[in-house]
Amino acid sequence: MSATSADTPASWEVVLVKYGRTKISYPAELLADDGTRVTVRAPWAGEGARDFGFVRFERGDVFTEYYWRDRWYSVKEVRDSEGVLKGWYCDVTRPATVSGGELVVEDLDLDLWRSADGSTVLRLDEDEFAASGLATTDPEAATAAENALDELERLAREGDFEALLT
């Protein structure tokens, strides 16, 4: 299904769930949906700027977000207000679900950052993941999440990363 289908809404709501509650939801423009991968674009949805130390997200930043119905992660390409690529922020999530114009993903705490030039690749929030107890409550999901982070890191370091997004 393409983004231009008559039965496909042009504006979707992205809903990020964490620990059973909505963490954030925001409107996004649907760019493509091929039945497996959904691509949307949205401005930075956070309140104010957020400085991670390795990147700063702020008003005017634009996120092109890639979600898969069959993979345990999402990838967000981040550009500043002038269109300059900052890098890619990846969330380890359960596979995305889509119903009508709502795209829902469950955040599993693990994240990865890859800078625009590929020189910096950071695994993030592994302490939060360990503290979440997922390994005890849902060991299969925990294993899938860890494997997803390993896959993202391998792709980010070996140069096949951008092929995910074409």
Results as ranks from 00 to 15, higher is better:
Arg50Gly: 00
Pro27Leu: 02
Pro43Leu: 07
Gly35Ile: 06
Leu30Ala: 06
Asp51Ser: 11
Val55Thr: 13
Trp44Gly: 00
Arg50Glu: 09
Trp44Cys: 01
Val55Leu: 12
Gly46Phe: 00
Glu29Gly: 04
Arg50Thr: 10
Ala49Arg: 14
Ala42Cys: 12
Arg50Met: 14
Gly53Met: 06
Arg50Tyr: 14
Pro43Val: 08
Thr39Tyr: 03
Asp33Cys: 07
Arg37Trp: 05
Tyr26Asn: 01
Gly35Asp: 06
Ala32Asn: 11
Asp34Leu: 07
Thr36Gln: 12
Ala32Leu: 08
Gly48Glu: 10
Ala49Glu: 15
Ala28Gly: 09
Gly48Met: 06
Thr36Met: 03
Arg50Lys: 15
Gly53Val: 09
Arg37Val: 14
Phe52Val: 05
Arg50Phe: 14
Thr36Trp: 00
Ala42Ser: 15
Val40Ile: 15
Ala45Gln: 13
Phe54Val: 08
Val38Asn: 04
Arg41Val: 13
Thr36His: 07
Ala42His: 15
Val38Arg: 13
Ala45Gly: 08
Asp33Phe: 08
Asp34Met: 11
Gly35Glu: 09
Ala45Phe: 14
Phe54Tyr: 15
Pro43Lys: 10
Arg41His: 02
Pro27Val: 00
Gly35Leu: 06
Pro27Cys: 03
Ala42Asn: 15
Ala42Trp: 00
Ala45Val: 06
Arg41Glu: 14
Val38Thr: 15
Pro43Glu: 12
Pro27Phe: 01
Ala32Glu: 13
Ala42Lys: 12
Trp44Met: 05
Ala45Arg: 13
Phe54Asn: 04
Asp34Ser: 07
Thr39Gln: 09
Glu29Lys: 15
Gly35Cys: 10
Arg37Asn: 02
Ala42Ile: 00
Thr36Asp: 14
Gly46Thr: 11
Arg37Met: 13
Ala49Asp: 15
Asp51Ala: 11
Pro27Arg: 08
Leu31Met: 10
Thr39Ile: 14
Ala28Cys: 09
Arg37Lys: 13
Asp34Thr: 07
Pro43Phe: 06
Asp33Lys: 04
Val38Cys: 10
Tyr26Leu: 08
Pro27Ser: 08
Phe52Lys: 13
Ala28Glu: 05
Glu29Met: 10
Glu47Arg: 13
Gly48Trp: 05
Asp33His: 10
Trp44Asp: 02
Arg41Asp: 07
Pro27Met: 03
Val38Asp: 03
Gly35Pro: 09
Val55Lys: 09
Asp34Pro: 07
Trp44Arg: 02
Gly46Val: 09
Glu47Thr: 13
Leu30Val: 04
Val40Asn: 06
Val38Lys: 11
Arg37Phe: 01
Thr39Cys: 10
Arg37Glu: 11
Val55Met: 11
Thr36Glu: 15
Ala45Tyr: 15
Thr36Phe: 01
Val40Cys: 12
Phe54Ser: 02
Asp51Glu: 08
Thr36Ile: 14
Val40Ser: 10
Thr39His: 02
Asp51Ile: 02
Gly53Asp: 07
Phe52Ile: 02
Val55Cys: 11
Gly46Gln: 07
Asp51Met: 04
Arg37His: 05
Ala32Phe: 01
Glu29Ser: 12
Pro43Met: 05
Glu47Leu: 08
Phe54Asp: 01
Ala28Pro: 03
Val38Gly: 02
Gly48Val: 04
Ala49Phe: 05
Ala49Leu: 10
Leu31Pro: 05
Gly35Phe: 08
Gly46Met: 02
Tyr26Gly: 00
